Simulated assay, not measured.
Amino acid sequence: MPDVPHPRPARRQTVKTPIEGREPMAARSPRLARRRAETRVRLLDAAFGLVAEKGMDGVTINEITDAADVGFGSFYNHFDSKEGIFAALVDWLFEEFANTLDQLASGLADPAEVIAVCVRHTLLRACREPVWGQLLIREGLSARALSRGLGQRLLRDAERGMAEKRFVMADELMCVISVIGTVLAGIAAELDLSMSSRRAVPTRKILRSRAEKFAESTAAIVLQAFGLARLEAERIAHRPLPAAPQDATA
């Protein structure tokens, strides 16, 4: 029986049908953005923990991704280098803290009290978290110190005090720069002293009391730099301190 040629099957048209349970890209975008943001925060958290343990110079990208449980290649979806993540870490930590200070001072009418509260909370956190304090010293000495974060807020609050004739400064910018230097030098000295004191195993209550007195004294000095009389500056610096959220001071 001769072979009968089979008719060539017609080309099947591909009909795209929605896959059950699969969302359109538009619907998935917020989820992807959220996951990306969560990964970035995990990397920053891991970097901060490693810096606290080993210092910046002793941390590698591999260690950061391992601690964050993130693939090595994924690191470069967020940061271009180790220096890049450290710069982002500084921005993240201090912008968040600066926002917290804004919330704490939002109900204060006196620019002098705003300055005092911010200085005291900053010093207290630096004393409680030495690594945070060391990062603050590094950031405060950078060229961008006045353009963002805590430096930007200090300059803004100083300008407000000048506008309301609460502060008296011959040169506003130089005064703010000198205040930043005073705060950073104070933090450096206190961190060194705290390290020595911890070797003597003092109680936590003693350390906290000393840190609070130190923060109050520094705030009084800062207010005097802004033109307040010593007695008034000390009175404002000793006012009850608004409580900060646990994650901002612990």
Rank of each mutant, 00 (worst) to 15 (best):
A143Y: 05
A88C: 09
S194A: 13
M195F: 14
L141M: 09
V168Y: 10
P111I: 05
I236P: 09
L155T: 10
S106E: 15
I137W: 03
V90A: 15
G58M: 07
E159S: 13
T65N: 05
A98D: 07
T39W: 01
M56A: 14
S178A: 12
F79K: 07
R125C: 13
M162K: 10
R125A: 09
R198A: 11
R230P: 00
L43D: 04
A105M: 13
E63N: 11
A46Q: 11
A188C: 01
A105R: 12
I64N: 09
I236M: 12
I64R: 06
E190Q: 15
P245L: 01
S142H: 07
R210Q: 14
W132R: 11
A126Y: 04
T100F: 03
F94K: 08
P240E: 00
A26T: 15
M162N: 07
R11A: 15
L223R: 02
N99L: 05
C175K: 06
A145D: 03
M25K: 14
L207I: 08
A243L: 01
Q246H: 00
F72D: 03
P30G: 14
A248R: 04
I187T: 09
L50S: 06
R128M: 07
D57V: 12
V51H: 08
E234V: 07
A219W: 01
E190L: 15
T14L: 15
A105Y: 01
R153G: 02
S74F: 00
D102Q: 14
Q134F: 12
